[in-house]
């Protein structure tokens, strides 16, 4: 746990030249970032008319997510707090424009000009004062996220970093700079329910509508949460899309169990309750009784005459 980046220093200090290069040269991280960005773009639901859009990449880092945006033909403006990460982005010849800024102090963008905003593993929010800061971080053990968090919106390392104020500034400025009906998709890893609710509540207070989309909710590794926020009041068109594999009962358990099914005996009948079997059997019925009586009469036996009481059931307390 000692190598968790956030445990060592705030992002602008931890991501020095060496760390930034390490981060960007890992093919695994590049692949994951590309996947996350693709999914975020999908959730942005930009109209499919081939016109490039102007997007904001919050916490763009070394421009890995921006590369995917460029491949999809969009113009983007990237924002990050780490100078070293941005230097790597320059080396990688990121197509978008880069700005060195701190999103917790608000985005310096003119109102209503952006078609959308994405943020990949960057809005990593720590809401609590420095006493519980480290405790929360050590509780936070998702293996996939190990190298991914880049920017803590609320690093409690500096006295002016007051989490709630920063969250408020961030969401309010984001709301302002997005066009009406535009979406912001943020991939987040909230540590607990309270955190998720706090992020969402600040987003709602800023005027966003939307919610959390969870991909692969049953898998610990593949599970991803996206905050999908829409500018403007809730409506049908702004309904939160469904996460991937949300409907499946359990993804990983079912796969590969086909062989087992062929080998095991079907035992469902064995567990059927006995009483139910009896209940299913019908009584012999009036016709059957009348038929039998007729047979006995033909044989010459003494048989009582038929009446309305024939083949009726006795009462229980007889």
């Amino acid at each position: 746990m000692a190598s968790r980046p956030e445990l060592q220093a705030p992002p602008e200090i931890f991501y020095n030249d060496e760390e930034a290069r390490k981060y960007t040269s890992s093919s695994r991280i590049i692949e994951i970032q590309a996947q996350l960005t693709e999914r975020a773009l999908e959730l942005l639901a930009l109209p499919d008319d081939g016109i490039p859009r102007l997007l904001l990449d919050i916490g763009c880092g070394s421009g890995l997510s921006g590369e995917t945006l460029t491949e999809n033909g969009h113009h983007w403006i990237g924002l990050d707090i780490s100078q070293s990460m941005l230097d790597v982005a320059l080396e990688r010849e990121a197509e978008g424009d880069l700005i060195l800024a701190d999103m917790g102090q608000g985005l310096g963008i003119r109102p209503g000009v952006l078609d959308g905003a994405i943020s990949i593993s960057a809005v990593q929010v720590c809401f609590f004062p420095s006493t519980s800061y480290h405790f929360i971080l050590t509780q936070y053990l998702l293996p996939m996220t190990f190298h991914l968090d880049k920017q803590w919106l609320c690093n409690a390392d500096k006295s002016c970093h007051e989490p709630r104020k920063r969250l408020k500034a961030f969401f309010e400025s984001l709301y302002r700079c997005l066009a009406r009906g535009a979406r912001a998709v943020m991939q987040v890893y909230p540590e607990n329910l309270a955190q998720r609710e706090l992020i969402l509540s600040y987003a709602m207070r800023a005027g966003f509508s939307g919610g959390v989309v969870v991909d692969y909710p049953h898998s610990t590794k593949k599970r991803k949460e996206y905050l999908v926020l829409t500018c403007g009041p809730p409506s049908l068109s702004t309904a939160t899309p469904k996460g991937k594999a949300e409907d499946e009962e359990s993804c990983s358990d079912d796969t590969g169990s086909e062989d087992e099914k062929n080998q095991t005996v079907c035992v469902s009948d064995r567990h059927r309750p006995r009483k139910k079997q009896k209940l299913n059997k019908k009584g012999k019925g009036r016709e059957w009784v009348l038929k039998k009586k007729e047979q006995m009469r033909r044989k010459g036996n003494a048989v009582p005459p038929d009446s309305k009481y024939t083949a009726r059931k006795r009462k229980a307390r007889f």
């Binding site: 403006i77 985005l107 963008i109 003119r110 952006l114």
Partner: peptide
């Protein structure tokens, strides 16, 4: 930095 970005920038620092 392209001029499109210059055009979009508007300083907003902690509410001011």
């Amino acid at each position: 930095m392209r001029l499109i970005t210059h055009n979009m920038i508007k300083l907003f620092l902690l509410g001011e």
